[in-house]
Amino acid sequence: MSAAPTLLQVEALEVVYGGAVHALHGVDLAVRAGEIVALVGANGAGKTTLLRAVSNLLPALRGQVTAGRLAYDGRDVTRTRTDALVRAGLVGVLEGRHCFRGLSVQENLVAGGLGRGSGRSDVRADLERVYGLFPRLAAKREVAAGLLSGGEQQMAAIGRALMGRPRLLVLDEPSMGLAPRVVEEIYRVLAGLNRAEGLTLLVAEQNVRLALRHAHHAVVLENGRSALAGSAASLRARDDVRSLYLGGAECPEAAAPPEARRRAPA
């Protein structure tokens, strides 16, 4: 797997909010084309900040990259505007499923296509593709996104990102606050896209067990530093990761085998 080129390279990244709060101090991360990389860590470890830095959203949030560099597809993108990144295929999905509430599902999706600069026929084809992946969205295409359930909003947000035809899709906590069955469906679609189309994924996830089950590689963030990195299998096997992230803190439902979980009420 080391033959695949590195799509995203993060080197010694440091981020400061408002000139005072140090959120990241020295994060290293590499995402190879075609793999799923999980970014795991506790609350406040810096997962969201790292993903914001990757999409260059920090300036709008009073944050700033003070050291280190970000390279996407071999080019330094530390100062590249978000819309240019989207056109280059680096598309993000925010934490907390942010849809445009006043627009219909379809308008939300189309916004994702137009942001990339897709033509009309491309948008139409991509719409069908997204509706094929998330049939629930097809049934609600004319409904205002603000009226959807949490799971549907997350699907709409992911679908909107897919409309941008990403090469690297960056997701922040796609499982947050959702029923296990919905989480399964979302991860099944994402893993399917990875297998079938080679879509590269960088996923921040608090549910470490879930993340390690789907990812090829994982990076553990601790207090704004990348503490551990390795293949998902090797991290699953490590004692310290087990006791810190996979131990008794997990709720029993998440620890149950997938068969049992699928029967749980959604």
Binding site: S55, L57, A60, L61, T82, D83, V86, R87, V91, G92, V93, L94, H98, C99, F100, R101, G102, L103, E107, V110, A111, G112, L114, G115, R116, G117, G146, A157, R160, A161, M163, G164
Partner: peptide, 22 residues
């Protein structure tokens, strides 16, 4: 589409940025 972008910025500016709205 420009009108939709206006609404997108109103509803969620960061998400609008993230789908490529200028």
């Amino acid at each position: 589409p420009t009108g939709r972008n206006l609404v997108a910025i109103r509803d969620n500016e960061t998400a609008a940025r993230l789908v490529g709205v200028k």
